[in-house]
Amino acid sequence: MNKDSFNNRSFTVSQVSETSLLVSFHEPVGADLSLFIADCGKAVNHHFAGTVVNTVPSYNALLITLQPSSEQNCVEKLNRVLLAVPRKKTDGQREAIEIPTWYDPEVAEYLDEITEKTGCRLEELIRLHTGQTFFVYMIGFCPGFAYMGDLPEPLRLPRRTVPQTKIPAGSVAIADFQTAVYPLAMPGGWNIIGRTPLTLFDAGRKQPGLLQQGDRVRFKAISREQFLQQGGLL
C-alpha cells in the first residue's frame, strides 16, 4: 500500500501497518460523529469489497484492515470515499432498547462503596441511571461489550484501581462518562452497580450481540424476584 497520509479538515488517514489504515476524526466525541463513523465503515466495505478484511470503529477513529495484495494509492481512494459519505443527525425518536436491572449489593459487591464515593443514596443512583437514555458509541473490549454514554455527572467515577478478577455476565457497570453491561464473565475494572437477566451476547443468535453501535438504551429497575423470574443467575 502507498505509505502516504492524507490530511483533511475533518479527518486524517494514516497507514499504521503494511495492511492497515487508521482514519482519525478531528472533532469532539458525540452521537452524530459515531453514526458518521459507522456509515464510513459501511462505505469502505462497499467500495473496497474483496480487499477489506475488517473495519473497527471507535469513539473517534476507524481502523481498516485490507488484504496484503491491495491496490496502490488506496489512501487517496479512501479519502475520496470518505468525503462522499453524507453527515446525518442522530434520530432522537429511535426506540430505546430496555435493559431490566436489579440494583443491589447482592449482585454488586462494592455498591455501598460506590454510593459513598458518588455521594448518592442508592435510590438516587438508581433514579439517575434509569432516568437517562444512553447511546451506544462503539462495541469493543470483548464480543458484545457496548460502550454507552453519557452518564449524569454525579455518577462519573474513575475505573477501580484494583480490578475484580471475575465479574459475572450481565453485570451493569459505570466508569468515567460511560456505562456498560459485561456480556461475559471476565475480569474487569469498572464499577458494578447491578445485574441484568438479559443475555448480551450469544454466538448462536443471528445477531450475536444484543446491542449495536448507534442503538439507544434505557435501564429499568427491577426487584430480586423479577430478576430471578426473568432468568437472572446469582
Rank of each mutant, 00 (worst) to 15 (best):
S14M: 13
S14L: 13
S14D: 08
S14H: 13
V16Q: 09
S17Y: 05
S17H: 02
S17W: 00
E18G: 15
E18P: 03
E18C: 10
T19G: 05
S20A: 15
S20W: 09
S20N: 07
L21M: 05
L21I: 13
L22E: 14
L22M: 15
S24E: 14
S24A: 12
S24Q: 15
S24Y: 07
S24R: 15
F25I: 07
F25V: 11
F25Y: 15
H26A: 13
E27S: 09
E27V: 01
E27Y: 00
P28F: 01
P28V: 01
P28G: 03
V29N: 05
G30P: 02
G30D: 03
A31G: 12
A31K: 05
D32Y: 02
D32V: 01
D32E: 13
L33V: 04
L33D: 01
L33G: 03
S34N: 02
S34T: 11
L35C: 14
F36K: 15
F36G: 08
F36V: 10
I37G: 02
I37Y: 00
I37R: 00
A38S: 15
A38Q: 11
D39L: 13
C40Y: 00
C40R: 00
G41I: 08
G41P: 11
G41Q: 03
K42R: 15
K42W: 04
A43C: 08
V44F: 01
V44I: 14
H46P: 02
H47S: 05
F48A: 02
A49I: 09
A49G: 06
A49K: 15
G50S: 01
G50C: 07
